[in-house]
Amino acid sequence: MNIFRLTGDLSHLAAIIILLLKIWKTRSCAGISGKSQILFALVFTSRYLDLLTSFISLYNTTMKVIYIGCAYATVYLIYAKFKATYDGNHDTFRVEFLVVPVGGLAFLVNHDFSPLEILWTFSIYLESVAILPQLFMISKTGEAETITTHYLFFLGLYRALYLINWIWRFYFEGFFDMIAIVAGVVQTILYCDFFYLYVTKGEGRSQLSIPT
C-alpha cells in the first residue's frame, strides 16, 4: 500500500466520521441529503459483500466494517433518530435516475459477469455519482454549513488521492483497473466545482453556496 492510498482511505474515514459527529453533536441533520447517505450505504453494502467470501487483511476487513457501520448509523440518525430535523423538502433529487442507469451499466460493462463482480461494479459506478443529491440540495438551498463543506472536501479528496494511487500502482506495479479509474475520474470531476469554492471562499466564511 502506498501513501496516497492510505491517506485516501483516512480522508474517506475522516469525511464519514465528520458527518456522523456533526449530526450527533448538533442533534440535527439539517442540510444533509439523506438520499446521498442511503446511496453510500448501498455502495458499501454492494461492494463489501466479499467480506463474506474472502479475507485480505485485518486492515481491509476493519475499514470495510467501519465504513458499512458508519454508513448505516448515518442513515439511522437521519431517517429515525433525528428525523424531525431532516430537510426532506429540499432533498428532492430523483435517485432512480442514478440507480437504474448505473445498474444497467454495471450489467453491460464489467470485468466478469458474475453476481459479486456485477455488484462490485455497480458500487463503483454508483459511488461516482452518489454525492449528486447532496450537491443538488446545496445548490437548491443555496448554502451549506462549514462542517458540511469539510465533509465534502474530505470525501472529494479521498477519490482524488485514489487517482494518484492508481497512477502510482500503474507505474510501480503495472496494475490498473479501467472501471475504477474511469469512475474515479468522473467522481473527482464532480467535486471540482466544489473544491474551487471551498478553497476560494471556504476560509473564514460560515456558509458556502454552489451555483446551479
Binding site: M1, R5, D9, H12, D50, S54, I56, S57, N60, M63, K64, Y67, H111, D112, E117, W120, Y162, N165, F175, D177, A180
Partner: peptide
C-alpha cells in the same frame, strides 16, 4: 486482471 489485487482497495 487479478481480482484479488483489485479487492485490496476500499
Amino acid at each position: 486482471d487479478d481480482p484479488s489485487q483489485k479487492k485490496d482497495e476500499l
